[in-house]
Simulated scan of single mutants.
Amino acid sequence: MSRTWSQRPGRRHFQPRPRGPWRKLLDYALAVILLGLLALVAARLDRVATKQESGAAIVNDGDTITLGAERIRLRGIDAPEYMQTCNKDGADYACGKLARQALVKLIGGQPVSCQGWQRDRYGRMLGDCTAGGVDLNAALVKAGWAIAFGDFEQEEAAARGARAGVWAGSFQEPRDWRRAHDGASEPQHGALASVGDWLREMLRFW
């Protein structure tokens, strides 16, 4: 004979067992680990936080300036080194010094503002810089006094088409010139490199 719903036994209610000392210790350990992970993430985010610098600039060369105590390498571009020469109409000329002069002219004595978070192998901040509303990184490449170095490919194409700056003759790429003269090697630092650097900083243990 089948039971009706009213005749079915009611559900049993069980009281949860009190947590033992080992379970409590495990809970405390998990809480400590979680707090440690949160602190680690906060430290990593601090490493990739964008830094702002502004003020009167000292122009060191075609792609490096100093603002206060911060030495800044313009991100995504590469200008001829200060002592580098290029060739035009069969004659060498001081393209490195002209690149520096081009940056001085673009700044025009105005305050410079830079932002960035990456560092190059020399500890310089890789910055995107402006002066008087002019994007210095892009303007240098478009004027032909710096080449694309991970970014600003469209500006480089325009300069090459107009035979502006170093594109009016022949030149050795600055990174090749550095490698030949002091053995220095520098990776490009454009948009894709920024993503890679961000991931490395987030995953770096120390």
Rank of each mutant, 00 (worst) to 15 (best):
residue 2 S to F: 05
residue 2 S to E: 12
residue 7 Q to N: 14
residue 7 Q to H: 15
residue 8 R to L: 15
residue 8 R to K: 04
residue 13 H to Q: 02
residue 15 Q to A: 02
residue 15 Q to E: 11
residue 16 P to G: 08
residue 17 R to Y: 05
residue 19 R to S: 15
residue 21 P to L: 00
residue 23 R to W: 08
residue 31 A to D: 03
residue 32 V to F: 15
residue 32 V to K: 10
residue 33 I to K: 02
residue 34 L to K: 10
residue 34 L to R: 15
residue 40 L to D: 14
residue 43 A to Y: 02
residue 47 R to K: 12
residue 52 Q to M: 10
residue 52 Q to L: 09
residue 56 A to Y: 00
residue 60 N to M: 11
residue 63 D to M: 02
residue 64 T to V: 07
residue 67 L to S: 03
residue 68 G to L: 00
residue 70 E to I: 08
residue 72 I to A: 02
residue 78 D to M: 04
residue 78 D to R: 11
residue 81 E to M: 11
residue 82 Y to P: 10
residue 83 M to F: 09
residue 85 T to E: 10
residue 86 C to P: 08
residue 87 N to Y: 08
residue 89 D to A: 14
residue 89 D to C: 05
residue 93 Y to A: 03
residue 94 A to K: 15
residue 94 A to W: 11
residue 96 G to I: 06
residue 98 L to V: 12
residue 99 A to R: 11
residue 100 R to H: 01
residue 101 Q to F: 12
residue 106 L to W: 01
residue 107 I to H: 06
residue 110 Q to A: 14
residue 110 Q to N: 08
residue 110 Q to R: 13
residue 114 C to Y: 04
residue 114 C to F: 07
residue 117 W to I: 03
residue 118 Q to H: 12
residue 118 Q to L: 09
residue 119 R to F: 07
residue 121 R to P: 05
residue 121 R to A: 06
residue 126 L to A: 04
residue 127 G to H: 06
residue 127 G to R: 09
residue 136 L to T: 11
residue 136 L to S: 14
residue 137 N to K: 08
residue 137 N to M: 10
residue 138 A to R: 10
residue 139 A to T: 12
residue 143 A to N: 11
residue 145 W to N: 06
residue 148 A to V: 06
residue 154 Q to A: 14
residue 161 G to A: 06
residue 162 A to M: 12
residue 162 A to Y: 07
residue 165 G to E: 03
residue 167 W to K: 04
residue 167 W to P: 00
residue 168 A to T: 13
residue 169 G to L: 15
residue 170 S to R: 13
residue 172 Q to F: 09
residue 172 Q to M: 13
residue 173 E to R: 04
residue 174 P to I: 08
residue 177 W to T: 01
residue 181 H to P: 07
residue 185 S to M: 09
residue 192 L to C: 04
residue 193 A to W: 12
residue 195 V to N: 15
residue 195 V to C: 03
residue 195 V to L: 15
residue 196 G to D: 14
residue 197 D to C: 02
residue 205 F to P: 14
